[in-house]
Amino acid sequence: MKWDKDLSTRHGGLSARDRIVRSLCLLFLVAGVGILILTIVYLFIESGPGKGFPYRVLDCFTGEWQPLATPPKLGMAHAWVSTFMITGIALAISLPIGFGIGLFTSEIAPLIVRRLLTPSLELLAGIPAVVYGFFGAVTLVRWFEKVFQLSTGETILGAGIVLSVMMLPFIASTSAEAFRAVFREYRESVLSLGVDQLTMFRRVILVRAFPGLIAAAALGLARGVGETLAVLMLSGNTTAFPDSILSRGQPITALLATEIGETAVDSEKYHMLFTGALCLMLLVLLLNLAISFLKKKVYGTLYAS
């Protein structure tokens, strides 16, 4: 039948309008993914691929940063270490607090508190990074100088704490959504058996919300690794190798942003900075892949046990 062929078989029952919308969506998707690929391609081209490239990558992670020495030393080990320390501190603080806020706003808080808390958290996400930087500079930095007797209060720890506040809204709102959906689905069935709230939370809610919590952590992590301005302002932005959480540091994003402006195009330093950017980009992608893999794997074992 003609009708069958036209609507059901060939186009899966889509009208002309449906097909236009579908094509547009596909176009946007291709454009989005295309930009991601182009970003990686351009970073790669500018990082000076060729004979010296593998060595440059190795140097990027392991070497010292002394661009004015002869010959210039262009390793960024100190920056990678700073980035990992700051992000680690930030996650360690914001994951438990964020999950706690998520649980509180999704289930425990009375409706009125929930209605006030949720928009305030969203506002927290809207504060510009530079404002966080100023805020950290007049609070944590000054306070650390007094408490830890430092000559300057700019520290890895301070940058990590402020970064944790910046990550908090993302972690809290994503985990709240995960908790809310799971509670809605299971609350009545579980509690109708007469068990208490903690048993419900431990044995059902946590297991089912787990993928959502991992997604929340991934979102926070991606944001934390990529954050530039606030950590630049608060970490001290020094090229020395950080030896404790109270030393000054320079995360990789801060190093790249600081140096790229005064670097000659196609110089060795220029290639090195792009190599750093490329590695950072790939690292974030890799982290996301690893997390989604972990999510499947851990969820599988949690579910089956």
């Binding site: 109708s192 007469g194 068990v195 044995r203």
Partner: peptide
């Protein structure tokens, strides 16, 4: 108390909902 009552007066819902476990 409510928990004991829920235990003694059990309910089977319209849509079956197995919990995430074996």
């Amino acid at each position: 108390g409510e928990q004991q009552i829920r235990k003694r007066i059990g309910i089977v819902q319209q849509r079956p909902l197995p919990f995430p476990m074996s």
